[in-house]
């Protein structure tokens, strides 16, 4: 380590950019949420009016809570389906099943494809008229199974989840996989000498060691879940799909902040109130997550 003032020269440029374009906007959003402002002219202080409108006015709150419910429905899917699936895939790659290199390459591949192209793929597969799925069903003699897919309010969310799993499972999967590779070989060898099979190894040795990656993946997933925008926007349009089944908070924000004349007023204050509310929810989820993981680790430590 050196003692010299040169560090200032290294840090200041990045510090300025990071502060101006990353930190200030978040802080400023909190400030703006207490004003009524269209971007030009004076800022009118309105206290908590923007939050009251969002959370309690009959029309707006219905839209907001419908969207927020969808965000949390997705959080539920993350913890019940996606994360377990990522851990299982990470483990089958870890124990080097046949063709694991090819399988890893292919499972991770969609992660590098733009969401706008994923959305196009979804059209190719699920479009009721020209999509592959309905054509395939007709071709194999099951025309009665053809559906409206994204146009069916009972199906749209399920298909959305299926697309998310296909497209975005790779990152979390590889984070778990990297964590598994760090599990001490002594522990693994000891378990193997005790005659543990792959399944027992998974539950008794590998799974309890995944605390740090579980923390990372859950953090990433919560951020992704509560700022969900691209995919539902591309699949269901700006209004959030049939019967708003694919409406998410970030899309409500987009309509209110950038919708302009199409969706009523343009209010930067109200849009910021939505952002700040999401931020508070994200922070609350982080606290809850920390508490949960802490409790799990305590229980584990107690059981040994």
């Amino acid at each position: 380590m050196k003692r010299s003032r040169a560090y200032i020269g290294f840090i200041v440029p990045g510090f300025l950019i990071y502060t101006v374009f990353m930190i200030v906007p978040i802080v400023f959003a909190v400030y703006m949420s207490f004003f009524n402002w269209s971007g030009v002219g004076p800022m009118v202080p309105v206290g908590l009016a923007n939050y009251r409108k969002l959370l309690f006015s009959s029309r707006e709150s219905r839209i907001f809570f419908n969207a927020l419910t969808n965000n949390f429905k997705y959080v539920g899917v993350v913890f019940l389906i996606i994360t377990p699936l990522q851990i299982v895939f990470a483990y089958v790659l870890y124990i080097r099943i046949k063709a694991h290199k090819y399988i890893q390459f292919m499972l991770f591949l969609p992660y590098v494809i733009s969401t706008s192209i994923i959305g196009f793929f979804a059209t190719m597969v699920f479009d009721p008229n020209i999509g592959m799925l309905n054509n395939l069903l007709a071709a194999v003699g099951l025309p009665h199974l053809r559906g409206a897919w994204m146009g069916d309010p009972n199906m749209s969310f399920k298909i959305f989840v299926a697309i998310v799993i296909w497209a975005f499972i790779g990152n979390g999967m590889m984070i778990f996989n990297a964590n598994m590779k760090e599990v001490s070989h002594d522990i693994l060898e000891a378990a193997r000498i005790d005659g543990a099979g792959e399944l027992a190894m998974f539950f008794r040795v590998v799974l309890p060691q995944l605390g740090s990656s579980l923390n990372t993946v859950s953090t990433l997933s919560i951020i992704y879940a509560l700022t969900m925008f691209d995919l539902p926007f591309l699949l269901g349009g700006v209004q959030g799909g049939v019967n708003n089944t694919l409406d998410f908070v970030q899309m409500v924000f987009y309509r209110r902040a950038f919708g302009g004349t199409y969706f009523g007023e343009t209010s930067l204050g109200y849009g910021s109130a939505i952002s700040v509310t999401v931020l508070v929810i994200i922070m609350a989820c982080f606290l809850l997550l920390r508490a949960l993981i802490y409790a799990l680790e305590r229980r584990q430590a107690g059981s040994i």
């Binding site: 978040i26 703006m32 953090t219 951020i223 700022t227 910021s272 700040v276 931020l279 982080f286």
Partner: peptide, 10 residues
């Protein structure tokens, strides 16, 4: 921890 989407308006 802070997704940039939340600072879009500022």
């Amino acid at each position: 921890m802070f997704p940039i989407q939340l600072g879009i308006l500022p």
